[in-house]
Design a protein around this nucleic acid. Structure first.
Length: 549
DNA sequence: ATTGTATGGACCC
DNA sequence: TGGGTCCCCTACAA
């Protein structure tokens, strides 16, 4: 079976449409016309590409099953023909060529080219081995067994052990929740007792250059994006499981990234570093998905991470601990910094409550404000200038609240962004002025609203179709602004070949990041660097990908 | 209210 | 080396 497949590939490769067309012209039997021979490389739109491609693959398969004999003939006689060298063609040969041509036409008509492209993707080279090592399967060494009968002993009366209550949690994580902090910052992928590498600590404390560069005009921006590439060194396994959140450290001298995964792990990776596993240090501050992480722009040595397990912690590299920031029973979903100094936060849980957390005061001194529909809060985003405003992605509407006017329940929204027909997965204020809000919605649309006037119902500026159906196994896609400018954003994509797309707020596509060798998975979590020309993308197996210039 | 299903990736045998 | 299997706590449609 395998050999047959490779043979078939060889056939389609060797017979280019030009070859066939040429021979057919020579044989002057142009029954179907050369136009039919043209390949139609389809630029599949966002609309259900997966369904389409699956159907296509199926068609390709069944046709392959139907025609193995013909194709074998084609291949054999083709070799023969190569060594023939005569221009005059016998009737048999003409017939054969016509067969080849018809087969080729049929195959092109079912988009074999695209199908083989997809097959290439399916039989892609193995994923990057950089970063965290695959764990060798722990094989339990059992004592040699000998039956009681052979030992001439009486049979035991066996009772089954009780079934564990929640197998999922018990199997996959040692505890339901980590104890209260501060927890020492011991990398789990290093020998126990080892100190953090000093170069790593130094880098984490490095601040970004604060002077704001002039934003490039769009043409220059596109050129800069085009210049950003990925290589083998720029892919690494940073956490063990699927990435739920990721962020760049603000320093610009090197690329340092953090990623949080499904089982509470946080991986830190410096591109090209010597420490840990290819520059990766792995920590375990939580036990459930790390829904949101962000470095403090005021104190770059601090990384805040939030988990569904109900804990919000602050990794302080200088102190080498994880401090508690906020804690509830479970169900923390997302947060954003409220003040410029990053000392206060807006924290949202999946029951629909929003809390204002002040890190300078001890304990959970928070206000609970909302009784929304349960389990509908997906995202919070603070206005970059008017810090009292924050946007909350509720089920089918984004509400903007004023943190100074919050009540325990039924707080009045300042503005509401309407028009979403399914649940909204994210909503973000534009990074420089806050004059725009960018939303991603399960109704397969990315929307941009004009919030400059902050009226009751800010106008919808742009709607972009984008396939958001990632299914159960992938993190949801979110459109995220480039923090370097006011008007462009990045979003992962389900399209094949795999890609990450950048759009202007007008809906104009600016660039698609692709790479045959180093990008072959969906990068659900994408983010631009705050100052550098660099982009990160996280996939479902804990691998980070970097495009940079 | 309950049930079914879509969906990607890689690990492991 | 390739295909079977697992992952799973989600959103939506029926």
């Amino acid at each position: 079976m395998a050999t047959r497949r490779t043979k078939r590939k060889a056939v389609t490769k060797e017979l280019t449409p030009d070859d066939i067309e040429a021979t057919v012209r020579r044989s002057s039997r142009n029954a179907l016309g050369p136009k039919r021979l043209q390949y139609s490389p389809e630029d599949s739109t966002a609309e259900t590409p997966s369904k389409k491609s699956r159907a296509k693959r199926h068609v390709a398969k069944s046709s392959q099953n139907k025609k193995p004999k013909d194709e074998a003939d084609v291949e054999n006689s083709d070799v023969e023909h190569t060594f023939d060298g005569h221009g005059g063609l016998s009737l048999y040969e003409l017939e054969r060529l016509e067969n080849i041509r018809q087969n080729q036409a049929f195959l092109s008509s079912i988009n074999l080219v695209q199908a083989t492209e997809e097959l290439k993707q399916l039989s892609r080279p193995k994923p990057s081995q950089r970063g965290l090592m695959r764990q060798a399967a722990v094989k339990e060494v059992l004592p040699a067994r000998k039956s009681l009968r052979l030992q001439n002993k009486e049979a035991e009366v066996l009772t089954l052990p009780p079934e564990p209550r929640d197998t999922l949690i018990h199997e996959r994580s040692s505890q339901v929740k980590k104890p209260h902090g501060p927890l020492t910052m011991g990398p789990v992928n290093m020998e126990e007792g080892n100190e953090l590498p000093s170069q790593f600590v130094k880098l984490c404390c490095e601040d970004s250059a604060k002077e704001r560069k002039m934003a490039l005009d769009l043409k220059e921006y596109r050129a800069a994006l085009k210049n950003m590439t990925i290589t083998e060194e720029k892919v690494a396994k940073v956490v063990k499981d699927r990435i739920f959140s990721a962020a760049f450290h603000p320093c610009s001298s090197s690329l340092l990234m953090a990623a949080g995964d499904k089982w509470g792990k946080v991986g830190l990776w410096k591109l090209g570093a010597e420490w840990g596993d290819d520059g990766v240090l792995l920590f375990e501050p939580h036990t459930r998905p790390v829904g949101c992480i962000a470095f403090s722009s005021a104190r770059p040595s601090q990384l805040l991470s939030l988990s569904y397990d109900g804990s919000l912690r602050c990794m302080d590299v200088e102190k080498a601990v994880f401090d508690d920031v906020y804690d509830i029973e479970d169900g923390l979903k997302t947060f954003d910094f409220l003040s410029h100094d990053c000392s206060t936060l807006v924290v949202g849980n999946w029951y629909g409550d929003v809390s204002i957390v002040d890190r300078r005061t001890a304990g959970n001194s928070h206000e609970s404000l909302h009784s929304l529909d349960p389990k509908t809060l997906r995202c919070v985003s603070v206005h970059p200038l008017q810090k009292q405003y924050f946007a909350v992605a509720e089920s089918k509407v984004v509400s903007i609240y004023d943190s100074r006017c919050l009540k325990k329940t039924k707080s009045q929204a300042v503005s509401q962004l309407r028009g979403h027909s399914l649940s909204i997965s994210s909503a973000y204020f534009s990074p420089c002025t806050g004059n725009r809000v960018l939303t991603s919605c399960m109704d397969n649309h990315i929307r941009i609203y004009d919030t400059s006037a902050m009226t009751t119902n800010p106008p919808l500026l742009t709607t972009i179709r984008h396939d958001m159906h990632t299914g159960r196994w992938l993190s949801k896609l979110s459109a995220v602004w480039d923090p370097k400018r006011e008007d462009c954003f990045v979003v992962g994509s389900m399209m094949k070949p795999r890609r990450v797309q950048v759009f202007h707020e007008s809906g104009q596509p600016q660039h698609s990041f692709t790479d045959n060798e180093n990008l072959s998975t969906v990068l659900s979590i994408a983010a631009f660097h705050p100052t550098n020309n660099a982009l990160l993308g996280g996939n479902a197996s804990g691998r980070l990908h970097v495009f940079s210039s």
